[in-house]
Nucleic acid binder design. Structure first.
Lengths: 146, 146
DNA sequence: GTACAAATGAAAGTTGTTTTTGTTTATACG
DNA sequence: CGTATAAACAAAAACAACTTTCATTTGTAC
């Protein structure tokens, strides 16, 4: 995500355009992978001179609230974030090795949703679908999971 | 889950049959819903006289490790547990109102998996699929989400 | 019954995240 | 271009969920 592009996004969210926010957005834009708040912190610190960890959390929260970044909860009980400005209904293919995240435009749960409703008589409101594996690159190099 | 049944499960896991472990299993067996460790604690305490919260965590960990209970992570960063001895590949339909959990034998992701592999060239290793909604009962009563 | 490994409680520790409070900074407006 | 002011920020402490440690108790095999 380029500087000017980031500024436009921030202004459209009525957020002030500050070096910290731009740095966090750039950081996530450069990696197409998920990062923890602390990892983002380590990456942006040198560029800014200094930034507090709570500030990183606050910025990530704001961006997640605006659906500019997506927050995922992994089984290590940490929250991870990645840039995902795509507002359409979609899911993610996550590489277990390099953490690369790819959008998947396919969902394929409509039929299943109907089936659940038919069988159980309940109502389906949402679903979480995440596909884990190895991206093409890691698969080629036969990388193991970390 | 009845007493003797619980004892059999514990013995097959080479775990000692203790009142605490039986109480935790019974507790989760009675609710067909997910509970937090603390909620389990509150429910089993009166039956046992007393039990420490760390013990509840330990027991839930053991049972989760043995795939007798399933652990889920929700966006409140807490871990929840429910009894699910079903070892077949399946997913869950979770009621957002009463937390009731139903097994779904349908998965329907095989075709999608093939499509992802075809398009991206990566490898799919696993997936998380969880369907949220209202169970038949809550839907009928038009219950809101908590 | 007895011995021994396993289970447990109590208290303290760890970790990821959030709140608080006082200071600094971006932006709108003159 | 100042300047007012609302927002952003740092630092420190607080918080909540969970885990570890270690001394004591309890199942279980013999």
């Amino acid at each position: 995500m380029e500087h000017e592009q980031g500024a436009v996004v921030l202004r459209s969210l009525r957020l002030k355009v500050t070096p910290r926010r731009l740095a966090v957005m750039n950081c996530l834009g450069e990696e197409r992978a998920y990062l923890s708040a602390e990892e983002v912190w380590h990456r942006v610190r040198p560029r800014l001179g200094s930034i507090g960890l709570p500030t990183v959390y606050r910025i990530l929260d704001e961006l997640a609230g605006a659906h500019i970044v997506t927050r995922i909860f992994r089984s290590d009980r940490k929250q991870y974030y990645f840039l995902c400005p795509n507002q359409e209904h979609h899911h993610h293919f996550v590489c277990d090795s390099c953490r690369h995240v790819e959008d998947m435009d396919l969902c394929g749960l409509d039929g299943m949703t109907r089936e659940i409703v038919r069988r159980s008589g309940g109502r389906v409101l949402s679903h979480i679908l995440q596909v884990n594996g190895l991206c093409a690159e890691c698969s080629k190099q036969n990388r193991e999971m970390p």
